[in-house]
């Protein structure tokens, strides 16, 4: 009976996984077909004559490369900025109590509730006055804000798990506070820092609203608004090309996740389960 149950769960899970991941497979598979093949029914489940022509077209397109470059710059800068801010702030929240520290923590967490669209209306006006429209700075600031609250919360969870005796021992050994934080404590929360870094990268890579509204020059466009505005308009029926661009935009995040999934998932769940 028990064995039968186990077999049944395997069958169920594997069937669900295949069904569930089919859209990713279909995106990949379409990107290796020509448009002639795509527009024929019944569809070729496995491309019979796979071609790299779509990839040559998409990656040979300067526009696409510009979008790609901009997304990488914005996402990496966001990752570094939010990591630094979160590592410092969450350490303070985990270890010290000072006037208003609880209130500030609450504010940090509740900012997730403010709809980006509402902030955008004010931010657009501000950025226009500060001449920040069409700059990386504008996008990095906006994306960092989005990544910061959860990053602080997750890292605080990791710091909470480290015994305070360590700091006392380090202080007796004559370590300064900053030295203690960077040389003794930080190496211990590396898994948390990695989780937060990947999360911040995913958040900014995913960004669409800020990239769409805070940028209106082609040479400053990031990947997701770029694909949506140029590829869907111009080549509305060139699905092979669109899917190839989609693969190109997914590859960095999918590979980052596949190699770091252990950290990512443990980081995300630490925050939620504790809270």
């Amino acid at each position: 009976m028990k064995q039968k149950n186990t077999v049944l769960s395997y069958v169920l899970i594997i069937a669900f996984c295949i069904l569930f991941l089919f859209p990713i497979y279909w995106m990949l598979s379409t990107s290796f077909k020509t448009n002639d093949v795509i527009m024929k029914l019944p569809p070729q489940w496995i491309p019979r004559a796979p071609t790299l022509q779509n990839y040559l077209n998409v990656f040979g397109d300067n526009k696409f490369l510009t979008f790609y470059k901009n997304s990488i710059i914005v996402s990496l800068s966001t990752t570094v900025t939010s990591l630094i801010l979160a590592v410092l702030a969450s350490y303070s929240f985990s270890r010290f109590k000072f006037f208003g520290s609880n209130a500030i923590q609450m504010v940090f967490l509740s900012t997730q509730m403010f709809p980006a669209m509402v902030l955008l209306i004010a931010m657009y006006t501000m950025y226009r006055q500060l001449n920040l429209i069409n700059t990386y700075t504008a996008l990095v600031l906006a994306c960092t804000t989005k990544a910061l609250p959860l990053s602080v919360w997750v890292l605080k969870g990791f710091y909470d798990g480290i015994p305070r005796d360590l700091e006392e021992a380090a202080s007796i050994d004559g370590c300064g506070r900053y030295e203690t934080l960077f040389k003794v404590i930080l190496p211990l929360i590396k898994p948390g820092a990695l989780a937060v870094a990947i999360y911040a990268f995913l958040v900014s890579w995913d960004d669409f609203l800020w990239g769409l509204t805070l940028v209106n020059k082609l040479e400053m466009r990031t990947l997701t608004p770029g694909i949506s505005l140029t590829y869907l308009g111009e080549f509305s029926y060139d699905w092979a090309k669109v899917m190839t661009a989609a693969v190109g935009a997914s590859v960095p995040v999918l590979t980052a996740f596949i190699f770091m999934q252990k950290y990512m998932i443990s980081g995300l769940t630490v925050g939620a389960v504790k809270g």
Partner: peptide
Amino acid sequence: FRGALFLPWTMPQVIIAIVWMWMLQTDY
């Protein structure tokens, strides 16, 4: 299994939108 099932969450919204637009395309 958990890692495989988590893959869609990592993909950008816009990419998910166009993948489904293609899956749900009327004729093909």
